Simulated scan of single mutants.
Amino acid sequence: MGEHTKNTIHLVKLCVGVDTLDQLEAWRAQRRRETGVAESRHVTRMWPKQEAALLNGGSLYWVIKGVIQARQEVLRLDEVVGGDGIRRCGIVLAPELIRVAPAVRRPFQGWRYLKPEDAPPDLPKQRVGDPEMPPELVAKLAEIGIL
Protein backbone atom coordinates (compact mmCIF):
# COMPACT_ATOMS: atom_id res chain seq x y z
CA MET A 1 0.00 0.00 0.00
CA GLY A 2 3.02 2.23 -0.39
CA GLU A 3 1.43 4.67 -2.83
CA HIS A 4 -1.70 6.59 -1.91
CA THR A 5 -4.50 7.02 -4.39
CA LYS A 6 -6.72 10.04 -3.89
CA ASN A 7 -9.74 8.01 -5.00
CA THR A 8 -9.14 5.35 -2.35
CA ILE A 9 -10.51 5.12 1.18
CA HIS A 10 -9.91 2.51 3.88
CA LEU A 11 -11.92 1.29 6.84
CA VAL A 12 -10.72 0.81 10.40
CA LYS A 13 -12.50 -1.65 12.72
CA LEU A 14 -12.04 -2.99 16.25
CA CYS A 15 -11.19 -6.70 16.24
CA VAL A 16 -13.48 -7.70 19.11
CA GLY A 17 -12.65 -10.83 21.10
CA VAL A 18 -9.08 -11.06 19.80
CA ASP A 19 -6.06 -10.11 21.93
CA THR A 20 -3.20 -10.79 19.48
CA LEU A 21 -2.48 -11.08 15.76
CA ASP A 22 -1.68 -14.75 16.33
CA GLN A 23 -5.21 -15.27 17.70
CA LEU A 24 -6.69 -13.54 14.66
CA GLU A 25 -4.62 -15.73 12.33
CA ALA A 26 -5.64 -18.90 14.21
CA TRP A 27 -9.32 -17.93 14.08
CA ARG A 28 -9.08 -17.19 10.34
CA ALA A 29 -7.30 -20.52 9.69
CA GLN A 30 -10.05 -22.36 11.55
CA ARG A 31 -12.74 -20.58 9.48
CA ARG A 32 -10.87 -21.49 6.25
CA ARG A 33 -10.82 -25.16 7.31
CA GLU A 34 -14.52 -25.08 8.21
CA THR A 35 -15.71 -23.29 5.08
CA GLY A 36 -13.06 -24.22 2.51
CA VAL A 37 -13.00 -20.55 1.42
CA ALA A 38 -9.72 -18.58 1.53
CA GLU A 39 -11.24 -15.10 1.62
CA SER A 40 -12.91 -13.91 4.80
CA ARG A 41 -16.02 -11.83 5.28
CA HIS A 42 -16.94 -9.35 7.97
CA VAL A 43 -20.65 -8.57 8.19
CA THR A 44 -21.62 -5.11 9.38
CA ARG A 45 -24.91 -3.29 9.71
CA MET A 46 -23.97 -0.20 7.69
CA TRP A 47 -23.11 -0.15 3.99
CA PRO A 48 -20.13 2.15 3.22
CA LYS A 49 -21.36 5.24 1.36
CA GLN A 50 -17.88 5.59 -0.17
CA GLU A 51 -18.14 2.13 -1.75
CA ALA A 52 -16.39 3.07 -5.04
CA ALA A 53 -13.37 4.53 -3.22
CA LEU A 54 -13.20 1.54 -0.85
CA LEU A 55 -13.23 -0.89 -3.78
CA ASN A 56 -10.47 1.15 -5.48
CA GLY A 57 -7.62 -0.43 -3.50
CA GLY A 58 -9.01 0.01 0.01
CA SER A 59 -8.25 -2.18 3.02
CA LEU A 60 -9.85 -2.95 6.36
CA TYR A 61 -7.39 -2.04 9.14
CA TRP A 62 -7.81 -4.11 12.30
CA VAL A 63 -7.49 -2.53 15.77
CA ILE A 64 -6.35 -5.11 18.32
CA LYS A 65 -6.05 -4.08 21.98
CA GLY A 66 -6.23 -0.37 21.10
CA VAL A 67 -3.62 -0.49 18.32
CA ILE A 68 -4.00 -0.78 14.53
CA GLN A 69 -1.82 -3.83 13.83
CA ALA A 70 -2.88 -5.35 10.50
CA ARG A 71 -4.94 -4.89 7.39
CA GLN A 72 -6.72 -6.97 4.78
CA GLU A 73 -7.50 -5.78 1.27
CA VAL A 74 -11.20 -5.32 0.52
CA LEU A 75 -12.21 -7.42 -2.49
CA ARG A 76 -15.91 -6.63 -2.72
CA LEU A 77 -19.07 -5.87 -0.76
CA ASP A 78 -21.81 -8.50 -0.68
CA GLU A 79 -25.39 -7.97 0.39
CA VAL A 80 -26.23 -10.23 3.32
CA VAL A 81 -29.84 -10.60 4.43
CA GLY A 82 -30.26 -12.29 7.80
CA GLY A 83 -33.14 -14.36 9.08
CA ASP A 84 -34.58 -11.10 10.40
CA GLY A 85 -34.87 -9.76 6.83
CA ILE A 86 -32.45 -6.90 7.52
CA ARG A 87 -29.98 -6.03 4.74
CA ARG A 88 -26.38 -5.92 5.92
CA CYS A 89 -23.00 -5.45 4.25
CA GLY A 90 -20.60 -8.38 3.93
CA ILE A 91 -17.11 -6.91 3.54
CA VAL A 92 -15.21 -9.60 1.65
CA LEU A 93 -11.50 -9.54 2.46
CA ALA A 94 -8.42 -10.97 0.78
CA PRO A 95 -6.94 -13.96 2.63
CA GLU A 96 -3.59 -12.32 3.45
CA LEU A 97 -3.31 -10.53 6.79
CA ILE A 98 -0.72 -7.77 6.29
CA ARG A 99 1.04 -6.43 9.37
CA VAL A 100 1.31 -2.65 9.60
CA ALA A 101 3.25 -0.22 11.77
CA PRO A 102 1.33 -0.04 15.06
CA ALA A 103 -0.86 3.05 15.48
CA VAL A 104 -2.81 3.76 18.68
CA ARG A 105 -6.56 4.09 18.18
CA ARG A 106 -9.19 4.96 20.79
CA PRO A 107 -12.21 2.64 21.17
CA PHE A 108 -15.20 3.29 18.90
CA GLN A 109 -18.25 1.41 17.69
CA GLY A 110 -18.75 0.08 14.19
CA TRP A 111 -16.14 1.09 11.63
CA ARG A 112 -14.62 4.39 10.57
CA TYR A 113 -13.16 5.66 7.32
CA LEU A 114 -9.38 5.99 7.18
CA LYS A 115 -7.73 8.25 4.61
CA PRO A 116 -4.74 6.74 2.78
CA GLU A 117 -2.43 9.47 4.11
CA ASP A 118 -3.45 8.55 7.69
CA ALA A 119 -3.03 4.78 7.23
CA PRO A 120 -0.02 3.18 8.92
CA PRO A 121 2.57 1.74 6.50
CA ASP A 122 2.99 -1.99 5.96
CA LEU A 123 5.74 -3.72 7.90
CA PRO A 124 8.21 -6.06 6.22
CA LYS A 125 7.03 -9.68 6.21
CA GLN A 126 7.66 -11.31 9.57
CA ARG A 127 10.27 -14.01 9.51
CA VAL A 128 9.04 -17.46 10.46
CA GLY A 129 9.79 -18.09 14.11
CA ASP A 130 9.94 -14.40 15.10
CA PRO A 131 7.97 -14.08 18.33
CA GLU A 132 5.01 -11.69 18.42
CA MET A 133 5.41 -8.83 20.89
CA PRO A 134 2.89 -8.73 23.73
CA PRO A 135 -0.03 -6.42 22.84
CA GLU A 136 0.61 -4.21 25.88
CA LEU A 137 4.21 -3.62 24.75
CA VAL A 138 3.11 -2.87 21.18
CA ALA A 139 0.58 -0.33 22.49
CA LYS A 140 3.12 1.39 24.77
CA LEU A 141 5.80 1.56 22.05
CA ALA A 142 3.27 2.93 19.54
CA GLU A 143 2.07 5.48 22.11
CA ILE A 144 5.56 6.92 22.52
CA GLY A 145 6.29 6.77 18.81
CA ILE A 146 8.94 4.03 18.79
CA LEU A 147 6.97 1.62 16.58
Score class of each variant (00 low, 15 high):
57 G>F: 04
25 E>W: 08
76 R>F: 12
90 G>H: 12
101 A>Y: 05
93 L>R: 12
67 V>R: 04
80 V>K: 11
126 Q>H: 10
109 Q>K: 12
102 P>F: 01
141 L>N: 11
135 P>L: 10
84 D>I: 03
57 G>D: 01
71 R>G: 01
80 V>A: 12
107 P>R: 11
23 Q>S: 01
74 V>N: 01
118 D>H: 14
62 W>E: 03
15 C>D: 06
30 Q>A: 04
127 R>G: 13
122 D>Q: 10
120 P>N: 02
55 L>D: 02
89 C>G: 02
6 K>L: 09
35 T>E: 03
32 R>E: 06
125 K>M: 02
53 A>E: 13
111 W>E: 03
106 R>K: 10
25 E>T: 12
139 A>C: 13
124 P>L: 03
61 Y>L: 08
18 V>A: 00
132 E>T: 15
1 M>K: 04
142 A>V: 10
131 P>S: 05
145 G>W: 15
22 D>E: 09
68 I>L: 08
92 V>G: 02
73 E>T: 15
76 R>P: 14
145 G>T: 13
43 V>I: 15
129 G>Y: 07
71 R>V: 05
130 D>G: 07
81 V>N: 01
38 A>Y: 06
84 D>A: 14
5 T>Q: 11
15 C>T: 11
41 R>P: 05
110 G>W: 00
48 P>K: 08
82 G>C: 14
135 P>G: 08
24 L>W: 00
38 A>T: 07
31 R>G: 06
26 A>K: 06
29 A>H: 09
30 Q>F: 14
50 Q>H: 15
32 R>D: 09
74 V>S: 04
36 G>A: 08
68 I>Q: 03
20 T>P: 14
82 G>A: 06
1 M>D: 00
84 D>H: 10
19 D>Q: 09
56 N>Q: 09
133 M>E: 14
112 R>W: 04
19 D>K: 05
79 E>G: 06
92 V>T: 11
16 V>G: 13
110 G>Y: 02
67 V>E: 01
39 E>I: 05
140 K>G: 15
108 F>W: 11
48 P>Q: 06
11 L>N: 04
64 I>M: 02
24 L>Q: 01
15 C>L: 14
77 L>R: 07
72 Q>Y: 05
112 R>V: 07
50 Q>I: 15
24 L>G: 01
56 N>P: 15
75 L>A: 02
76 R>I: 12
18 V>D: 01
17 G>K: 07
54 L>E: 02
125 K>P: 03
69 Q>I: 13
134 P>G: 10
86 I>F: 14
106 R>L: 07
26 A>H: 09
97 L>G: 05
131 P>D: 05
72 Q>D: 07
19 D>A: 07
78 D>R: 04
9 I>P: 04
30 Q>K: 11
41 R>G: 03
